[in-house]
Simulated assay, not measured.
Amino acid sequence: MSEKKVKNYTAEFKESAVKLAVESDKPVTETAQELGVNANTLHTWITKYHRHKVANQPRKNDEHVYDEVKRLRKELKILKEEHAILKKAAGLLCKRKSLKFQFIKDNQERFSITAMCRVMSVSTTGFYDWCSRPESNRSQEDRALKADIRVIHEKHRQRYGERRIKDDLADQGKNVSRQRISRLMKEEGIVCKTKRKFKATTDSRHNKPVAENLLNRNFKREQPNEAYAGDITYIRTREGWLYLSVFIDLHSRAVVGWSMRDRMTASLVTDSLVMAMWKRRPTEGLLVHSDRGSQYVSESYQKLLKENGFICSMSRKGNCWDNAVAESFFHTLKAELVHHEDFQTREEAKQAVFEYIEVYYNRQRKHSGNGYLAPFKYEQKIAEAA
C-alpha cells in the first residue's frame, strides 16, 4: 500500500484561505471542506495569520457607544443617498442649472429634493422657482429628441454613436446637427460601446531557445499529473492590472496551481508551478505546456522544470489554439466573474479569483469535458473506479 501524499500549501494560498474563512458567514469547518483542507489545519492558519493581528488592535472605550453608532448610521444613510445621486448625475455637475433642475425634477420620487440640491450645488428656492416657469419650445424639442436618441441607441444594442444616430433621425425626417446630438447624449449619459482595452501577456520578442510543441493539441489525458497547461491573463482593477498565472491538469481541467501579482515576472509562473507541485506531487516525466512568453523561457522557470524532471512543451509562435485549454479557462473566468465586477483594489480582485478557483471552479462548477462533473469530483470518480 502506497504512502498517503502530504499536501503542502504556499503562504499565498494560506493567507487567502484565512481571509475567506474569517470574512465568510459560513463555519470554518464548512469553508475548510470547500477548500479541501483539514479543518484543524485551517484553524491553525487562522491563529497564525489573523488572530495575532486582531489581538494587537487597541480596544475602543465602551462609553457612549450607542450614541456613536446612532450618529454613524445617520451619517451613513446620508452618504449612501449622496453617493447614489452622484452616481446617477455625475455628468451634470458642471452643466448649466436648468439641466440640474431637470434632473432633480425627474428624480424627486427617488431622492429627497434637499439632498439633490445639496449635491448639485443649487438652492431649493431656485429649484422651485424654475418649476413654476413654463417650459421653452427648445427645451421641449430637446426632451423629445432625447427620447428618440435613446430608442435608437437601445435598438442597436448601444453600438451607435452620434454619426449613425444622426442618419437614423434623418431617415425619420428629423434633421439634427451632430453637435446637438452629442450634447443631448452627454446630458443623458448615453455612450456607445467600445472595445475593451487589450493587454498583451505574451512577450515572445526574445532570442532565448524555445521548446517544441510536444503536446501537439492532445488535450485528453487518462490519468492526473500527466500533463499541465499554463498561461497568464490580466484582470482590470481601479489600482491597475492584476496578473494571474495558472497551471491546469489536462486530465480533469482542475486548476492545480495559481499565483497573482501586479507584475508579469518569472516568479509569477514559477510560484504557480510550485503551488501545483506542493499540492499534487507530480513525478518525473510530467509534460508542462505553455506559450513562448519570456516568463516561460526564463532561467528560473527552466531550472525548476529541469530539477524536477519535467518535460517542457511550448506553443507555436502566434498560435493560441495550441494552448486552448488555458485560453478556455480564462474566457470562463472572465465571462462568469471578472466582467461582472468593478474591482477597486488588486486585493479585492485577488480574493474573488481565489474563491472562484478554489471553492467554485475546482469543486462545484460542472465541466462538459468531464461528463458534467466538477474537476475534483471527476478525479475522485476515476480514482474510485480504478
Rank of each mutant, 00 (worst) to 15 (best):
residue 231 D to Q: 11
residue 234 Y to P: 07
residue 235 I to G: 04
residue 235 I to V: 15
residue 237 T to I: 02
residue 237 T to E: 06
residue 238 R to M: 10
residue 238 R to P: 01
residue 239 E to N: 07
residue 239 E to M: 06
residue 239 E to F: 05
residue 239 E to T: 09
residue 240 G to C: 09
residue 241 W to F: 14
residue 241 W to A: 00
residue 242 L to D: 05
residue 243 Y to T: 09
residue 245 S to K: 09
residue 245 S to H: 11
residue 247 F to M: 05
residue 247 F to E: 01
residue 247 F to L: 09
residue 248 I to S: 00
residue 249 D to R: 02
residue 249 D to M: 02
residue 250 L to C: 03
residue 250 L to N: 04
residue 252 S to H: 05
residue 252 S to L: 02
residue 253 R to V: 00
residue 253 R to L: 01
residue 253 R to D: 01
residue 254 A to C: 13
residue 255 V to P: 09
residue 257 G to H: 03
residue 257 G to N: 10
residue 258 W to G: 00
residue 258 W to V: 01
residue 263 R to Y: 13
residue 266 A to K: 14
residue 267 S to H: 13
residue 267 S to K: 14
residue 267 S to Y: 11
residue 268 L to P: 10
residue 269 V to R: 08
residue 269 V to W: 12
residue 271 D to H: 04
residue 271 D to E: 15
residue 274 V to E: 15
residue 276 A to T: 02
residue 276 A to N: 03
residue 278 W to F: 11
residue 280 R to N: 02
residue 280 R to Q: 09
residue 282 P to S: 00
residue 282 P to I: 00
residue 283 T to K: 15
residue 283 T to Y: 08
residue 283 T to N: 13
residue 284 E to S: 15
residue 284 E to M: 09
residue 285 G to L: 06
residue 285 G to D: 04
residue 285 G to F: 08
residue 286 L to I: 01
residue 286 L to F: 03
residue 287 L to K: 08
residue 287 L to V: 04
residue 287 L to E: 03
residue 288 V to F: 01
residue 290 S to T: 15
residue 290 S to E: 06
residue 291 D to T: 00
residue 292 R to K: 12
residue 294 S to P: 02
residue 294 S to V: 14
residue 295 Q to R: 06
residue 295 Q to V: 03
residue 296 Y to V: 03
residue 299 E to H: 14
residue 299 E to V: 11
residue 301 Y to K: 00
residue 301 Y to R: 01
residue 301 Y to A: 00
residue 302 Q to P: 07
residue 304 L to N: 05
residue 306 K to G: 04
residue 307 E to G: 04
residue 308 N to S: 09
residue 308 N to L: 07
residue 309 G to H: 12
residue 310 F to N: 05
residue 310 F to P: 15
residue 311 I to W: 04
residue 314 M to W: 13
residue 315 S to Y: 10
residue 316 R to L: 08
residue 316 R to C: 01
residue 317 K to S: 09
residue 319 N to L: 07
residue 320 C to A: 15
residue 321 W to S: 07
residue 321 W to N: 05
residue 322 D to P: 08
residue 322 D to G: 07
residue 322 D to T: 05
residue 324 A to N: 11
residue 324 A to Q: 10
residue 325 V to L: 08
residue 325 V to Q: 14
residue 326 A to E: 11
residue 326 A to Q: 10
residue 327 E to T: 11
residue 327 E to W: 11
residue 327 E to N: 12
residue 327 E to H: 12
residue 329 F to D: 00
residue 330 F to A: 03
residue 330 F to N: 05
residue 330 F to H: 12
residue 331 H to M: 05
residue 335 A to S: 15
residue 335 A to K: 14
residue 337 L to Q: 09
residue 340 H to N: 13
residue 342 D to E: 13
